[in-house]
Design a binder for these strands. Structure first.
Lengths: 371, 371
DNA sequence: ACTAATTTGTTTGGCTAGCAGACGAACTAA
DNA sequence: TTAGTTCGTCTGCTAGCCAAACAAATTAGT
């Protein structure tokens, strides 16, 4: 129904192969739960007009949050995918303690939840994106840019919200961003996707066969520290030639203050638009190195598409051609295995949006709210 | 039952949560299909003795084949995992035409099938391992070492066997090898595995969340041509610094004749055992470069284990320490994410055995032979 | 205007898978 | 010999789904 709305019960029966009677009873249950709503009838067709069905957006909301080095983001989405709210708020993530972060996130969450309940919506769940290694149990093992170590964010947040009555999840930012692309992006539904976060760090989110793949410990997608060039520059992690040391956003900016990165990137864009040779050169070099990293992921995973996010998006006009050339040259499959490289269109809120997507995923996979 | 045999109906009910009556009826159906057999009773316990159940090995067989540059391998396995047959036969794969290969594989298959029918076994299926890129439809897109291009091996084989009455599948050798490890190896059942074939080429088979991941086009696992060092040596593929150019078996042998590789590797082992400094040095270098490749895969996929196969196995005593050191140094997760690096114990027949495993997988996932 | 054709969605009755609980069978422990 | 335990089957029951019939609401054609 999400893909083909509005559609009739008969449409669903035809496309799923289920019996009309079965569809009717299932739809009745979904209407009881206020997940689905009848809209008008079809007209101007032979035969009895069909009563059309749509996902009912109004009674529920799904909330996604993102903690980052310089801001908190909150997104709320309804069941039909409509964006209800998108807030961004400055936050000194790089210097705040985990306890301060929990308090700030809890405060923001409370405000979003209040807004939702004022709108008569029930909150289905909250998922928080964190840039770092997240264990399979949802605790933050380590988030270098936030200076966090073994923080049970989900538990602390639940405590701060005093048993909020909806589940709270924590997940890696790249993992959530790729979920956002999979549900809301122009390549939505594509079964094999890789998403690259373009921040000072570079992380990957990997969807294979339609599901997020988190690896054994939940640490998959750590592409930022694969070694692109053993003779490359030293990375802040202490190793040499890491992808993020040669193709991270940090290569293009001089500041170490995360709050200033955005304006510096704007400046790079300005110089590139003006045709500044040194800038164009530097962007081409970063693009090629990024292409090397993409080629590695593509050779290993054979995705249908690689999506560039974060600050890679405004720089895409200059990065993409070089990256695509390099990736194609280094790919073993003919024609790059039909894999596309594209810039994300979801903007900076991708990870938070992915949090909301994750909550919706759990509804789609059967955890329905009771009637 | 495969994991806990022999076990009683009551055991199954207890461990699955199914009702005893349900288990009884399902078991009756499996016994009808001759997939399961009752063995003796338990004794010396309080209460009524249980009738124990085991997988019935005798009525069926699953066949795996491998086409390689210098040999064909055939393996037959019964339902309980017992090896029934393991044949290896010289075959000039590097020079034979696809048609000749089909004829040779068909002849070998016929002999295996005849043996199975003589033993009163029904063949459940055949899966053929091919070193190359295999499309999602099972056609061989390209197999460089065999000189193949767009060969519909499954179709041709079915034609040559004149509608054999069992399904024929074709799959990449590394993909099948990792299935063999997952079913028969000491790490069997581990949900996230990477297997590296150690031949002149290097390929990877990837299992994530318990299932083989083939990527969008079926081309996943092409780790052999990821660029380890942009300043590295030229690879036979024309690129520079590919993993197989720095850590493939070809680095350690001088011959280009695949038939002679095995004896040359034996010679390397002899020299290493004798403590020859140049050899040990070379092995350490290859081990380190292999470790770089492993680190890349581990950072991106976070597997529970990486398994080295092919000629890496006899060389493992010298390669593994260097590879593990390097991989640990380049891994972002603490303690290498708990990931083990081990040598395969399945021997050269791993890919063929994996073919048999694939057929058994399809039985386990519900394609049962009729009663 | 009226009938035939078409399409929708509900109703009816039936089938199957699985469940809970009762029960007989077969054993051990005291 | 009796009590207790465990196994596997048997007996009804329910939930989910199906096929087919059917009523409702429309268009197409004469």
């Amino acid at each position: 129904m999400r893909d083909n709305a509005p559609c009739s019960r008969a449409d669903i029966a035809a496309s799923t192969g289920l019996n009309k009677a079965t569809v009717s009873s299932l739809v009745a249950d979904l209407i009881d739960r206020r997940l689905v709503r009848e809209t008008g009838l079809t007209e101007n067709r032979v035969g009895r007009p069909a009563t059309m069905l749509v996902l009912d957006g109004s009674p529920y909301a799904s909330i996604g949050l993102e903690v980052n080095v310089d801001y908190l983001t909150a997104v709320a989405v309804d069941l039909s995918g409509e964006r209800l709210l998108s807030w961004r708020r400055a936050f000194p993530g790089a210097t705040a303690t985990p306890a301060q972060a929990v308090a700030a996130v809890a405060a923001l969450t409370r405000r979003v939840v209040n807004r939702m309940t004022k709108d008569q919506r029930q909150v289905l769940g909250v998922a928080v994106a964190v840039p770092g290694l997240i264990g399979t149990d949802g605790t933050v093992r380590v988030a270098p840019n936030l200076g966090w170590h073994e923080v049970d964010l989900a538990g602390d947040l639940a405590k701060a919200l005093r048993d909020p009555g909806f589940p709270i999840q924590v997940e890696n930012d790249a993992n959530l961003a790729v979920l956002a692309e999979h549900r809301f992006g122009p390549l939505g539904g594509t079964p094999n996707l890789v998403y690259l976060t373009g921040e000072v760090g570079v992380g990957a989110g990997v969807i294979l066969d339609g599901r997020l793949r988190r690896g054994g410990q939940g640490f998959s997608g750590e592409i930022g520290h694969i070694q692109i060039d053993p003779q490359g520059p030293r990375c802040r992690c202490g190793r040499t030639g890491c992808l993020e040391a040669v193709a991270g956003i940090g290569v293009l900016v001089s500041t170490t203050d995360p709050a200033e990165v955005e304006s510096e990137i704007d400046e790079v864009v300005r110089r590139a638009k003006a045709g500044d040779a040194a800038t164009l050169d530097q962007l081409a070099t970063v693009g090629r190195d990024l292409g090397r990293g993409i080629a590695i992921a593509a050779n290993l995973l054979d995705p249908d598409a690689v999506i560039l996010g974060g600050y890679y998006v405004p720089l895409a006009p200059w990065l993409l051609p070089a990256a695509a050339d390099q990736a194609r040259a280094l790919s073993i499959a003919a024609d790059f295995g039909g894999c596309e490289i594209v810039a994300s269109t979801l903007g900076y809120g991708a990870a938070a949006l992915g949090g909301a997507a994750r909550v919706l995923d759990s509804v789609d996979s059967g955890r329905l709210p009771s009637p």
